[in-house]
């Protein structure tokens, strides 16, 4: 499966993953993180049910230091 995550191409990810499975696959810490799929925010409660498709674009953000 081909995904664009945070502006970078990821060409050979496993097919048929949910958002939750992608988070696990990438080894991301879930605390205080948010995901946008094709410009729509996905609520954490929906991670298990939202399935990813080829060419989906994701933004995965968290809080860092700022003014």
């Amino acid at each position: 499966m081909f995904l664009v995550i945070n502006g970078k191409d990821y060409a050979d990810l496993p097919d048929g993953m949910s958002v939750a499975e992608l988070v696990t696959h990438l080894g991301l810490p879930e605390k205080k993180m948010a995901i946008e799929l094709n410009r729509a925010v996905i609520s954490k409660s929906a991670y298990d049910n939202v399935m990813l498709r080829d060419n989906d674009k994701l933004e995965i953000i968290h809080f860092i230091g700022g003014g």
Binding site: G7, E59, I60, I61, F63, I64, G65
Partner: peptide, 24 residues
């Protein structure tokens, strides 16, 4: 505290996180 919103570093998900030092 003010905080910024930025992309997670996918290549290094274990780098230090703000929330580990300042408890929200």
């Amino acid at each position: 505290v003010t905080v910024a919103v930025r992309r997670v570093n996918i290549n290094n998900p274990n780098e230090p996180m703000l929330v580990d030092f300042i408890n929200p």
